[in-house]
């Protein structure tokens, strides 16, 4: 099995989907000749031509709006928004059309499209390049939102998103893009949207993370086991919406304790929703209040200070010890 970075794995997923289905087409800023600013779409223009890999004018609202039209026609567009911070320009079209056209047309025009966008901090980028706004997409009826955490699940999730009959926001943790390699099989691989993965089994504390936060969470889980004797069950959420409530509830029913790690701002966040669901469905099993290690309700810091904003293993370990302190 070849070893790949997440960028290479995403490229493989796009390539194989385009090869097997000629309705799949890509569009976005600098995705063609340039291969995307992160090179996720490298070489695809050469292979599939301008009708299927479209270097677009610089207008995010147009990219999503016209992609919706192409999906209404019956194509399967996979538009790229260069950085998730720029999805705000496209919010109009995401909310008014992408999310609700199927409903407004009484099922006549399902919108099978995937909006890809690199999200999150940690790469020393300029302002507006580090946002984590997955809560917006979870809050918008009609959308699905998934976030991979490594090369292999990125490839499988992207295939699943492209195959999905409904619109999917595909958030790519750009801090993970080239952070490590994994074995990724040649043959196409998919996974079910809406399913979380237990990344590490444990009995003392349930830890929930997704995307780029899986790395500090996993590192903290290792240290908690090795240095503090705390046996963490780590859940990789993978799908923000729909959310795998069952896996979360089962785990917390077993451990009685839960810690959520996210880089997004705190208020009305995905962590807030997880806590609400556990309150509804696992309250009787809780030994300690659920805690979150989160980004703050501030504009994402400029890069000289971003390392202090982002949740790190030490902070996660301290929070885990707090949760464990409840008897």
């Amino acid at each position: 099995m070849p070893q790949m970075t997440m960028v290479q794995a995403l490229n493989l997923a796009l390539d194989q989907s385009m090869e097997s289905d000629d309705r799949v087409c890509l569009m976005g800023e600098d995705i063609g000749v340039n291969g995307g600013v992160f090179r996720v779409t490298q070489n695809l223009l050469k292979k599939y031509g301008e009708n299927r890999v479209m270097d677009t004018p610089l207008a995010e609202c147009s990219i999503i709006g016209t992609a919706v039209g192409m999906a209404m026609y019956g194509l399967k567009p996979v538009p790229e928004i260069q950085f998730s911070g720029f999805t705000m320009q496209a919010f109009d079209q995401i909310e008014q059309n992408m999310a609700r056209m199927r409903n407004r047309s009484r099922g006549r025009y399902p919108i099978s499209m995937v909006m890809r966008a690199p999200y999150g901090g940690g790469i020393r980028a300029v302002e507006h390049h580090s946002e984590s706004r997955e809560a917006y997409w979870a809050h918008t009826p009609g959308l699905k939102c998934v976030i991979p955490s490594g090369p292999r699940n990125a490839r499988a999730l992207l295939k699943a998103a492209i195959d999905d009959p409904d619109p999917v926001v595909f958030y790519e943790p750009k801090a993970v893009y080239r952070a490590f390699k994994e074995d990724v099989p040649d043959e196409p691989e998919s996974m079910e949207i809406g399913k979380a993965k237990v990344a590490r089994e444990g009995n003392d504390l349930t830890m929930i993370a997704w995307g780029a936060m899986m790395r500090p969470a996993a590192e903290a889980a290792d240290d908690l086991a090795d240095l503090h004797g705390i046996d963490v069950e780590l859940i990789d959420l993978l799908s923000i919406k729909p959310m795998d409530t069952e896996t979360i509830v089962n785990s917390v029913s077993k451990t009685g304790r839960c810690l959520i790690v996210q880089e997004a701002p705190q208020t009305c966040s995905v962590a807030s929703e997880i806590i609400a669901r556990l309150n509804e469905k696992a309250f009787e099993y809780l030994i300690a209040p659920i805690k979150r290690v989160s980004g703050y309700d501030i504009i994402f810091p400029y890069y000289q200070t971003e390392q202090h904003y982002l949740p790190d293993p030490d902070t996660v370990i301290e929070a885990a010890k707090d949760v464990m302190a409840w008897e």
């Binding site: 087409c25 009708n51 299927r52 609202c61 147009s62 999503i64 709006g65 016209t66 992609a67 919706v68 039209g69 192409m70 999906a71 209404m72 026609y73 019956g74 194509l75 567009p77 109009d92 079209q93 008014q96 059309n97 056209m101 407004r104 047309s105 025009y109």
Partner: peptide, 25 residues
């Protein structure tokens, strides 16, 4: 036909996408 739009001007981009798709195909 598509459903009519209510948010002013919001349908014009998808309409353009329909034209782009027709052209591509």
């Amino acid at each position: 036909d598509t459903p009519f739009s209510i948010v002013i001007g919001s349908h014009v981009l998808p309409a353009t996408g329909l034209g782009m798709a027709a052209k591509i195909r």
